[in-house]
């Protein structure tokens, strides 16, 4: 065994592992956002508080291509991330409601608990109910919360995994708005 061989091995292993420690292994790319695919369509029941305004079922294709859409997947059991981002989303919705559609998808949850969450944060943007999480699979979702940004043409622009903060939200909104 030559001396340089083991030095190379140790340096390579050390470098690889050290690099590995600097990144988050849970950070997984979204196929939809990478290829800017058209947002997959779905039709989901609207949670009771929003039925008066949005009807019984919400079909995404009715709204695609009109204005940018922000699609937020959440669950009441997702603590603390979903609880952190709910006020941020609500505030942004109140500012941008004329130009952007915010959409919440309660996923793999129970209805009473979802309603409690909605009441706690006074969410006013439409909330849909997907107890099995089928739509999440269509969007290639890894775990709640995840937020998808759909541009005015109905294509997925970006995906943010984990709780979203004001600055990130504004950044993507700027990208989505013409």
């Amino acid at each position: 065994m030559r001396a340089w061989l083991w030095i190379l091995l140790v340096v390579a292993l050390g470098g690889l592992f050290f690099w590995g420690m600097q990144r988050n292994p849970k950070d997984l790319p979204s196929v939809l956002a990478k290829e800017r695919r058209p947002a997959p369509d779905f039709a989901l029941p609207v949670l009771p508080p929003y039925r008066a305004e949005w009807g019984e079922t919400f079909r995404l294709s009715d709204h695609l291509g009109k204005r940018p859409i922000i699609l937020n997947f959440w669950a009441s059991w997702c603590y603390p991330a979903c609880y952190e981002e709910a006020p941020v989303l609500e505030a942004a919705w109140r500012t941008y409601k004329e130009r952007v559609l915010f959409l919440g998808v309660n996923t793999q949850d129970k209805e009473p608990e979802a309603l409690k969450f909605i009441a706690q944060f006074g969410l006013t943007f439409p909330q849909l109910f997907d107890p099995r999480g089928r739509v999440g699979v269509d969007y290639g979702m890894y775990g709640v919360p995840e937020t998808f940004f759909i541009d005015g043409e109905g294509r997925v622009l970006a995906r943010h995994a984990g709780a979203i903060d004001q600055a990130t939200l504004e950044k993507y909104l700027k990208e989505a708005l013409p």
């Binding site: 065994m1 001396a3 083991w6 091995l9 140790v10 292993l13 050390g14 050290f18 420690m21």
Partner: peptide, 24 residues
């Protein structure tokens, strides 16, 4: 403790393989 264990792993490997290359 991640970096500490990485360092110890590399040290143990280097000591063994380094000595081995010396006497190979």
């Amino acid at each position: 403790v991640g970096p500490a264990f990485l360092g110890f792993f590399l040290l143990a490997t280097s000591l063994g393989l380094g000595l081995l290359s010396r006497v190979s």
